[in-house]
Each structure stands twice: as C-alpha cells, then as structure tokens.
Design a protein around this nucleic acid. Structure first.
Lengths: 220, 220
DNA sequence: GCAAAAGTGTTGACGCTACACCCATGG
DNA sequence: CCATGGGTGTAGCGTCAACACTTTTGC
C-alpha cells in the first residue's frame, strides 16, 4: 500500500448525502448500516484524487446503494474538528438528493451491510453528527421548495396526476400556503409551471374508482 | 519541519473570502496581491489543524488584511481538480463577507505585498479561478439580499440615515424593485425592519446643506 | 425666497385566497 | 343513482407600486 506524505497537514474530505423520497405519502430518507461501527448513517465517503465533490457524491451513492439520482446539490459543510469520532479531522460536504418514489432495488456493498428507507420522523440515532445533518437538510429542503417549487419534480415518476403532484408538495412543505388549496394549486401549475414549459399533458389518463385523472410529465 | 503522512490521499482544503463593501456609492471587493505569483487574488488560505472552516476564514482575513468582519458566510465549494495550478488538488470553500465602508487601515503581511479595495466592475484578472468565484459571490449576494433585506445592515456604520440605507440597497440589488422608490422603501423599513426591532431611531440627526436627517442604528 | 433633500398620504390596479360549484366514473 | 375524487369560475379582500404632496434646512 502506498503512503502519501506532505509537508503540510491536510484534513480528510468526505461527501455525505441526505437522500429524500416520498413513500406512503410521507417524507423518507435513505440510510445505510455501516460495517465499521455497526450503526445507521447517511451514505457518503471520502473524496478520491481527481474527482469533484459532486462526482464523489454520485459515486458513493452508486457504490453504497446502487442509486442514480436525478437531483443532487451541495447545501452545507460540516467542519467541527470533533464531528468525527475517529482520529483524523474530517470535513464533510453535505448534499441533498431527491429520488422519485422508493421503488428500487437497494444493494448493500463492501462497506455497508444494509440499506433502507426510513420515515423522516422515525430516524434512529445515527453515527457521528448525521442526525444534525439530516435536520439541517430537511430545513433546507423546505426553504428550497419555498423559493422554487420546481424542486417537486425530482420526487415524481415519469407520469403523474396533478393530485399526486400536490400531495408531494404537502408532504414536504411545513408552512401554510395557498397552494395547499386544490384550485390555487392547479392555477399555479398552469400559469407558472406550464407557462414555463415545465409540465405538459401526456394525453394518457389514470383510471381509478372514480373520474379518471389526466396524466402529466415534467418536460425533459 | 514535521512531515505528515497517511495511508490515504487527502486534498488540501482552503477558504477564500469575497469581501464586499460600498465606497463612493459603488460596490467594491477586497483583493490582495500574492507574493508567490505576484497576482491579485481574493484573500484566503489553508485550513489548519483543529479549526473550523469559518475560524479559518476569520483568521486568514485578519492575517492578510487586518480586518474583523461583521458578516461572513459560506456560499459555495469549488472542487474542480484543475482549479489550482499548483501540484496538489485544492478544495476551496468560498465565503461572502460584508464590511461597513472602506475606512480601515489595510496592512499587508508576509504572504501578500499589497491589499486594496477594487470597484466590482473594475476587477483585474485574478489568480486561479478567483474571477469565477467573484462572479458567483456577486450573484449570491444579490439573491441573499432579495430573500432577506437584513443583509443591508452589515454594510452600514453604527449610525446611518434612511437615505444612506436605501442607497446601499440600490448599489447592490440588480433587479427592479419597488423598494427603489423612496416612499415604499421607508414603509418597508418601518413596517418590516422596525417592526422586527432591527432598526431604531437614535435621536441624533445628521446636518447637511438641506433639511437634517434623522439617524438610525441597527439594533444590536 | 428658492433649491434641494427629508419625510408623508392616498388611490387604483392587480393578485391571490377562499369558497362554491360542475363533471365523470365505478359500483 | 349516489359517493367520490377530478376539475373549473369568480367575488372580494388586501397589498403595494406609483405619484403627488408637505416640511425643513442653507444660502
């Protein structure tokens, strides 16, 4: 094994990803069970030579969970010198990820023994400062959605009804908003999202026990 | 000199600070002239053992420029493997800083030969990817201000008139806004900022060539 | 008295909230 | 034919952008 040496001290740099989805109309996040300390944690790992932080996050997600994710964005750095209980100081670059629905085969790998979705309000005690990271990520998700409702779309599958789109919003947002009202929500979709070309009618319909609903898709 | 060695490769981690102020009613940023490559750059430097990223930024600003800054916030990481032309990969954590007015004694130190304020629209070609960092910081400053106008206050001295407060806003914001109108701006101050207790009348006045203006201060 | 900056009152247009209402389907 | 979820029309209220206006000072 090669050893790296340097005239200067360097911290370690890791990415950690808080990956959100909606299951059973509730907000969920993805956790992995680490083999090194046998605790649940958010997926992530160390930066390797020559990659960007985002590439690192994408790679770690794929390795640890087998997931390709349509939305991934840095939101905060965690640099408290005592945040990692192991010897070396670790700077963690935290990402928010969004995945459409929980239907996917989760595969554990060499570093993790288990992978699963957890309801956000049933998160167990996690390794390191990962509980804090989750709380900050959830706050950030809420405020991002408030600034820009386009963030809804990564949560959704290819085709969806307007009711599903609205239910997704209501799972995530915590503030009161007139968009929680059906009429206003639909006006918003047509004036704002459709006007910007974000959502288009596919022509298909979803049949249920009652009047069928038109299906829409995010445009590209 | 001690050498550090590790089983794993580590990147270097640095903080870089885009420090804004207003001079002559124009937005300015602080630049330092680096001794190592004789080029202008934004202040910053490497993380040292046991400090947080913010502590690092505060320390670097003090060392390179002698400035204590009332507002300092991380806004983005720059991790392109080729961003630093020197051999080692450097992750840069970029900060936005805000300083009230440009009146301060700037002192150069061992790493930098010169320090000065530059009008934002007269920034020269900078070292590394620092021009890109400045552009991103300026965008971010604008959007932060749009979300939360409290960001105006770090630009101001202890006492200021409402006209000065408004001029500061107009130096920074690029979008059209009804707050550019005097009447609406003052309503905003009294209903929003004063209601939140952010700004209070000091009782003092500033004399000029015309009707004197009441002075206000940010509340703590 | 006049120029210039400080500071105030008010209205009309617009957007959004809230509510009531029709429509299509399965059982 | 009725229960249920899909889908639409619109009144009225509140907000605020925009403009006109008064006040206070120096010269």
């Amino acid at each position: 094994m090669a050893f790296f040496e340097s005239e200067f001290w360097h911290p370690s740099v890791a990415t950690d990803i808080v990956l959100f989805t909606i299951r059973n109309k509730k907000l969920c996040i993805l956790l992995v069970k680490r083999k090194d300390n046998n605790r649940w944690a958010i997926p992530g790992g160390f930066l390797t030579k020559g990659e960007t932080l985002k590439e690192c996050a994408v790679r770690e997600l794929r390795e640890e969970t087998g997931i390709e994710v349509p939305f991934l964005r840095q939101f905060e750095n965690f640099s408290n010198p005592n945040r990692d209980t192991r010897k070396h100081q670790v700077i963690s670059v935290a990402f928010i990820g969004i995945h459409p629905s929980g239907k996917l085969k989760l595969k554990a790998d060499t570093d993790v023994s288990d992978v699963d979705w957890f309801f956000y309000d049933k998160i167990p005690e996690l390794a390191f400062d990962h509980n804090e990271i989750c709380i900050k990520a959830r706050d950030k998700l809420n405020s991002l959605l408030n600034e820009n409702a386009e963030l809804l779309f990564p949560f959704l599958d290819k085709e969806f009804t307007l009711t599903e789109l609205q239910e997704t919003l209501m799972c995530i947002t915590t503030q009161p908003s007139s968009l929680k009202e059906k009429r206003n929500f639909r006006k918003w979709v047509f004036e704002y999202a459709s006007g910007k070309g974000l959502v288009i009618e596919t022509g298909n319909i979803r049949k249920g026990n009652h009047r069928p609903a038109k299906l829409y898709s995010k445009n590209i």
